[in-house]
Amino acid sequence: MATAQGTKLLAAGVECIAAAVELVKTYQQGETRIRALDGVTVGFARARFTAIAGPSGSGKSTLMHCLAGLDAATSGQVILDDRELTGLSDRELTRVRRDKVGFVFQSFNLLPQLTALENIVLPVTMTGRHLDQDLLDHLVGVLGIGDRLSHRPAELSGGQQQRVALARALLARPVVLFADEPTGNLDSRSGTEVLDFLRRSVRDLGQTVVMVTHDPRAAACADRVLVLADGRVVDDVDTASGADVTRALQVVGRAG
Rank of each mutant, 00 (worst) to 15 (best):
V42E: 12
V124G: 07
C221Y: 05
S107D: 15
L85N: 00
G54Y: 02
T32Y: 09
G206R: 00
L88Q: 11
F49I: 00
T86R: 09
Q250D: 15
A73S: 13
T115I: 13
E92M: 05
A116L: 12
R35N: 13
T125Q: 12
E15R: 13
Q113E: 14
L149Q: 12
A219M: 09
D238G: 00
L136T: 00
G184K: 03
S188I: 08
K8Y: 05
L228K: 02
R217A: 14
A220N: 09
F105W: 05
V209A: 04
D134G: 12
R148H: 15
E15D: 12
R254D: 14
A53W: 01
G231S: 00
G43M: 11
T127F: 14
Q207G: 10
V251D: 08
Q5R: 15
N119S: 06
D223I: 06
E15S: 10
G102C: 07
G146R: 01
Q250G: 04
R33F: 00
G87R: 06
V176G: 10
A4T: 10
H214T: 10
G6Y: 07
L85I: 01
E15M: 00
T32M: 13
E118V: 07
S201I: 01
V104W: 12
R232L: 13
P153R: 00
A243Y: 02
A72Q: 12
L166D: 08
E15Q: 13
L205P: 05
G54L: 06
G256C: 11
V124T: 15
G87K: 07
V194D: 06
R200E: 13
V21K: 03
E92G: 09
Q207Y: 11
